[in-house]
Simulated assay, not measured.
Amino acid sequence: MAWETSGWQTAESPTANELLMQQSQRTFMTRVYAWMFVGLMITGATAFATVANQAWLSTVLQWRFGLIIAQLGLVLALSGLAPRLSGPVAGALFVLYSALTGTTLSVIFLVYTMGSIGQAFFLAGGVFAAMALYGTFTKKDLDAWKSFLFIGLVGIVLAGVVNLFLSSDGLGFVTACATVLVFAGLTAYDNQKLRQYHASSGFSSAATLSIVGALILYLDFVNLFLAMVRLFGKRR
């Protein structure tokens, strides 16, 4: 075994630069998850506050489709403009999007029991955690999943649109199952790709990168949760 002159470090040991890059990546992912959890807490708090305020809940129900359109516009703006936004502006938009999502999702408390919503949340959390760990530690390149996940995502959107007109419980069940599979896969894929994204940025410490990553994982979790609610939620 070859020995370096600077001490007991072997030739196979990480270099100082590699250690710095690993530390930078751990810091980046810590920030990503911190922002994601902040977003989820804001969403949950906003949903509870909306349900508790009858006047505001009535307004949300009246303008729900308009709020959903605003929600979609905001997430597209945050995703597309992120590279040109400062950290504070990106953070403010993410917080606003999280609150708006909580407002629109508050209606699930009118449809499903609190206990079954809590069960769905923990099931989604378990699936998310397992797939996030897989995406983090697997040595397999998950690029091969990209086409399958994209096709699955398009299929879910189309099935959802069709079911707006059919109102089929069977199609809704199949769509919910497919949503769990697709977003479980996306959770693993996105966790792996976020690290590559950070590396391709030159291991940048810009706050905006962390917020973009948080938004991606936030969307994965929320969609997993909603699918679990549709599968296991008990109606009032």
Rank of each mutant, 00 (worst) to 15 (best):
A2H: 11
Q9T: 12
T10E: 12
A16K: 10
Q23E: 13
S24A: 15
T27W: 11
T30I: 07
A34C: 04
M36C: 08
G39D: 07
M41D: 03
A45R: 05
T46K: 08
T46E: 10
T59Q: 15
V60A: 08
G66I: 11
L67Y: 13
Q71M: 14
G73T: 09
G73I: 07
L76V: 15
A77H: 14
G80D: 03
L85S: 04
S86F: 00
P88S: 04
V89I: 14
L93M: 15
L93A: 15
L100F: 05
S106P: 04
I108C: 03
F109Q: 10
Y112S: 06
M114T: 15
G115T: 12
S116M: 05
I117K: 06
L123I: 14
G125T: 12
M131E: 04
F137H: 10
K140R: 14
D141G: 01
L142P: 00
F150G: 08
I151R: 01
L153N: 09
I156S: 01
F165Q: 12
L166C: 04
L166H: 06
G170Q: 07
G170T: 14
T175C: 03
A176F: 00
A176V: 00
C177D: 00
V182Q: 07
V182D: 07
Y189L: 05
D190C: 04
D190V: 04
N191R: 00
Q192V: 00
Q192G: 01
S200K: 12
G202N: 09
G202I: 09
S204M: 11
A206G: 06
L215D: 07
Y218A: 05
V222N: 07
V222G: 06
N223I: 05
F225G: 02
R230C: 01
L231Q: 00
F232I: 06
K234P: 03
